Simulated assay, not measured.
Amino acid sequence: MTPEKAFGDDGCLRQPKELSINKVGHALHEHDPVFKKFAFSENVSSLFSSLGYKRPAVIQSMYIFKQPGIGGEVVPHQDNTFLYTEPLSCTGLWLALEDATITNGCLWAIPGSHKNGLKRRMIRDENGTHFDRPSPSYDQKEFVPLEVKSGDFVVIHGDLIHQSFENLSPVSRHALSLHVVDTEGCKWSKDNWIQRKSAPEPLYVS
């Protein structure tokens, strides 16, 4: 959500504040028992066990509101760009809390794009936070919509190129997003934008 959409010329919100929040993050699973219960649930743990993760940890969690009329665009990106480990291990979990449709800003992805490698990284250094190279240009015809019903769970490979468009409809599109990395056999990069003072609690240790 961009400020010019949320606020009028007089500096006041265009709509009630509860309909003006963009997202809340990035450690809901560490500070709220409801979100922690979900993040550490057997369903989530068993998913990562089936994917072969040895010591998975939720590295960030976000509640995304995608508000009616002002929910902003999320440009094409790969999750490994922001949450880099060596070797790469990020997997995104996207839980639809409301129906996500083309009209209200569902996810779009390029099928098979996760096989083509990481395109760029976001780096945090003495010059601040920046990308190591410009964003590639993508053919929008390659993207397909991922329309899902409330309660559906989307698993996103860290190299999958995905995006979402603005929500210009009168209907919100709430979602919970978790990103998980393996903390065994994978090294968290010292120049990632997220840096922790203590190691994250693993979902399990195999």
Rank of each mutant, 00 (worst) to 15 (best):
D99S: 11
K5W: 07
R133M: 12
G71A: 14
V74H: 13
C12Q: 11
E166L: 11
A39Q: 12
P87N: 09
L178Q: 00
D32H: 03
R196Y: 10
A27N: 01
N22S: 05
I21Y: 01
G185I: 08
I59W: 04
V154I: 13
K37A: 15
S198H: 09
F38K: 06
Q60I: 06
G112C: 04
V148N: 08
E98V: 10
E86T: 08
G151N: 12
T129L: 03
V34C: 08
V75E: 13
F165P: 04
N167I: 02
L83F: 11
S189W: 11
D99V: 07
M122W: 08
S177T: 12
T91V: 12
V34S: 10
I156K: 01
Q140R: 02
H77E: 14
G105K: 02
A6H: 07
L83D: 03
V44G: 11
P3N: 09
V24A: 04
G52A: 05
F143T: 10
H77A: 08
R124M: 13
G117D: 07
E166M: 11
E126W: 02
S172N: 01
L51A: 09
Q78D: 15
F82W: 03
L178Y: 00
W108R: 01
P202Y: 03
E184Y: 15
E184S: 15
R124G: 10
G69K: 02
G52F: 01
T103L: 11
